[in-house]
Simulated assay, not measured.
Amino acid sequence: MYTRHIFKVRVTKISWVSKLSDNEFPMTVLEILRILYFSEGPKTSIELAKFLKNRGIDVDPRTVRYHLFHLEERGFIKRLGRKGAKLTERGVNEIRRLLIYERIGIPSIEIEKLITDSDYDINKNKGKIMVNAIMVPKDKYDAVVPLLLDISKTNVITSPLLAILDEKDSIWHFEVKEGYVGILGISSRTYDIIFQKSGICLQSTATGLYHLENNIPKGFVEIISHLGTTISPGELLIRGGYTSVHKVASTGSGYVTAAIKTFSSFRYDDTLRILEKLKKNNISGVAEHSSIIPENKRVNVMDKNKGYLVVYGGANYFAPIVETGISKKLEIARDLYEIQKMKEPEKVLK
């Protein structure tokens, strides 16, 4: 027999707002920011106090309100009356900075959250899937439409399906600013969700710059490992000006992003069945696949027992918008969105 001891941390109010710099936060405040960051909507002081208690921090709602008052003073949150409080853009940027070491690598804590929260059913083709997002100025929207229609006819994207968000609409921490239109497209990280729910461990190991010539895949010319980075490698390649997806759409030759995903070799037949189902659901974009990673492509001894997929990046859909200088407000694997609300581009681009 043994006695179970439960330890609680009792936190008292402290006047931190006038004493601490932006680089320092009491533990309670840091956890409040963390909870709000991973929440889909506003949270009340009572809800926050419950979340904090579950994390071993015993405070009452009045203490939470005290901290929220000072966080709002510094522009990190916005209080919405009885609805609760939510992070501002400054607050999102601040907590992402504070969590920088927890966000290294893929899957990061954000990606893990999205994979866990997804309820996509491959058999019914319903539920929430992972999406990329881009904001474009309303006065440049007409120039965006033909770019998206052209790229939707290629096979270098995950899916042609799109959704449109109007100004002030939001998903998680992506809020469309006044004077802008938000566009959502399916992320290639959706493969990870679907395979995991099908009992197959699919690992995204790297993303790179992939060469096509006359619509024939030629292979990678550059690769960025997913280990040791907090920014999507695909986002880096597109924003950095390495891609030429617009040229690929018009000539069949150029550079696009693609991801390498590995799985156990003995699940290859299951993998093919999943890919066939996804194709029927308007999700495709596979450049290469094999039950065995070729010896010249192995990076460690464990790769000899693995199969692999090379899938085109979902963000290739929006790359021409960045390449032509219309907008650089691209965010990859931004949130989840119901696939049944997404439509063929001809039906949503008006």
Rank of each mutant, 00 (worst) to 15 (best):
L52W: 12
I292L: 06
S198I: 00
T230D: 11
I129Q: 05
A85H: 06
Y180F: 15
L148G: 06
I77L: 13
N23F: 14
T251W: 02
I77T: 14
K113P: 01
K43D: 01
I129G: 07
Q203L: 12
D22S: 14
V9H: 02
T190S: 15
K124G: 01
K83L: 15
L80F: 02
M130I: 15
R298W: 02
R97F: 07
P137E: 07
P42C: 03
E112A: 09
S152K: 10
T271V: 15
S45G: 10
V131L: 06
A287Y: 06
L275A: 07
I157T: 15
A315P: 01
Y268C: 04
F263Y: 15
K197E: 00
G313N: 05
Y37N: 10
E288F: 13
S108R: 05
T28C: 06
T44G: 05
Y66N: 08
L209G: 08
E213A: 05
N296K: 11
P107C: 05
F220P: 02
Y180N: 00
V64M: 08
D169C: 02
Y337S: 03
S21Q: 03
P26I: 11
E222D: 12
I164D: 08
I32A: 03
F266M: 12
V286S: 03
L30F: 14
L162Q: 09
K329F: 04
L309P: 13
N214K: 15
Y37V: 01
K113R: 14
L212D: 00
L275G: 11
G182W: 00
R334T: 15
S265D: 05
K279H: 09
K197R: 15
T230Y: 08
E72Y: 06
R4M: 07
Y268D: 02
S39Q: 02
V311E: 12
D117V: 06
N132V: 01
D303E: 09
A133H: 03
S118K: 03
S170R: 15
L237H: 10
N316F: 10
Q196A: 12
I77R: 01
R103A: 08
A258T: 14
G219F: 05
L33T: 11
F195N: 09
